[in-house]
């Protein structure tokens, strides 16, 4: 089965706190929940604990959800259904 955009529904329905992010700056691989979090800003800023580079920004203001992963080279998360992999 080819992967389609519909499969993104599966990704965004998951709890991502256990997802592993590869930092686009230094290449460190870290669980999302083990990053340095800066919630007291206009939006949540998540930084790599190894090099402090911004790996993720997430905002909820203005009636939109905003997700910036441009500082993340790779995000991996265990598929909920083994047959999906």
């Amino acid at each position: 089965m080819p992967t389609t955009l519909d499969d993104l529904r599966g990704l965004f329905a998951l709890d991502l706190t256990g997802a592993v992010l590869t930092c686009g700056g230094c290449g460190a691989r870290t669980e999302l929940g083990a990053h340095d979090l800066y919630p007291d800003a206009p939006a949540l800023v998540v930084r790599c604990p190894a090099c402090t580079a911004v790996v993720l920004r997430f905002g909820t203001g203005g009636g939109l959800l905003r997700l910036d992963l441009s500082g993340t080279r790779l995000l991996t998360v265990t598929a909920p259904d083994p047959s999906a992999g």
Partner: peptide, 8 residues
């Protein structure tokens, strides 16, 4: 005077 910061 709230402190808002996006980094260290």
């Amino acid at each position: 005077f709230p402190v808002l910061t996006a980094g260290p």
